[in-house]
Amino acid sequence: MTAKTEKKPAEKKVAEKTTAEKKPAGKKVDAPAKGAKPNALQQPLQPSPELAEVVGEGKLARGEVVSKVWEYIKANKLQNPKDGREILADDKLKKIFGKDSVTMFEMNKHIAQHLK
């Protein structure tokens, strides 16, 4: 006669992750490999003299230029209070935009014309 052995169900162990083991909050971007050419958005570009009055002298990546223009807009309160998408140009921005106001969607088109 054979003896029946009862198997106990295996207890599931739940591994709790500590906060240090969890996913990092921000997305980490790897630096380009040595000798690799940066993509179009990361290439440093020279701003025109008109744009340099707003963002400063020296070469900057396109994303940095847009960020600095937004800093200037917010610091000088140049957004339309009724419609935050509209930018009311002061004298410096009129030289870049060519008109009194632009939408934030048009802004990038005008900035691109002032980058080499």
Score class of each variant (00 low, 15 high):
Ala75Tyr: 06
Gln79His: 07
Pro32Ile: 15
Ala25Val: 15
Ala75Val: 03
Lys7Gly: 05
Leu51Ile: 05
Glu11Leu: 11
Asp30Trp: 07
Ala61Cys: 09
Ile73Thr: 03
Arg85Gln: 15
Glu16Pro: 05
Trp70His: 05
Lys27Phe: 11
Gln46Trp: 08
Lys77Thr: 05
Asn76Val: 04
Gly58Val: 04
Thr103His: 01
Ala31Leu: 14
Ile87Val: 13
Glu6Met: 07
Leu88Lys: 04
Thr2His: 13
Val69Tyr: 00
Gly26Phe: 14
Ala15Gln: 15
Ser101Asp: 08
His110Arg: 10
Glu21Val: 08
Gln46Leu: 12
Met1His: 12
Lys8Trp: 09
Ala61Gln: 04
Val14His: 13
Glu21Tyr: 07
Asn39Glu: 08
Gly35Ile: 02
Val14Lys: 13
Ala112Gln: 08
Gln43Arg: 14
Met104Asn: 12
Glu64Asp: 14
Val102Tyr: 00
His110Gly: 02
Ala40Lys: 15
Lys82His: 10
Val54Asn: 00
Glu6Lys: 06
Asp83Gly: 05
Asn76Leu: 10
Asn76Thr: 03
Pro49Thr: 08
Leu93Ile: 02
His110Phe: 15
Lys59Ser: 06
Lys77Leu: 04
Ala25Leu: 15
Ala75Ile: 05
Ser101Lys: 15
Val29Ile: 14
Gly63Asn: 11
Glu11Met: 09
Gln113Asp: 15
Lys116Val: 13
Arg62Glu: 09
Gly98Phe: 03
Pro81Gln: 11
Ala31Val: 11
Ser67Met: 05
Pro38Ser: 06
Lys99Ala: 02
Glu106Ser: 01
Gly98Arg: 03
Glu64Trp: 05
Lys17Cys: 09
Trp70Asp: 01
Lys74Asn: 10
Val102Ile: 12
Val66Asn: 01
Val55Arg: 00
Glu71Val: 07
Pro81Cys: 08
Lys4Ile: 12
Ser67Leu: 05
Val29His: 12
Val14Arg: 12
Ala40Cys: 09
Leu45Pro: 00
Asn76Pro: 02
Glu53Phe: 06
Lys4Gly: 11
Lys59Leu: 06
Lys17Arg: 13
His110Ala: 12
Val69Asn: 00
Pro24Arg: 14
Glu57Met: 05
Pro81Lys: 14
Thr18Trp: 07
Lys92Asn: 01
Tyr72Trp: 01
Ser48Gln: 02
Glu86Trp: 05
Gly63His: 05
Asn80Asp: 15
Met1Ser: 14
Val69Gln: 00
Lys74Met: 08
Lys74Tyr: 10
Leu78Thr: 01
Arg62Pro: 01
Glu50Met: 03
Leu41His: 12
Gly98His: 03
Glu50Pro: 00
Gly84Gln: 12
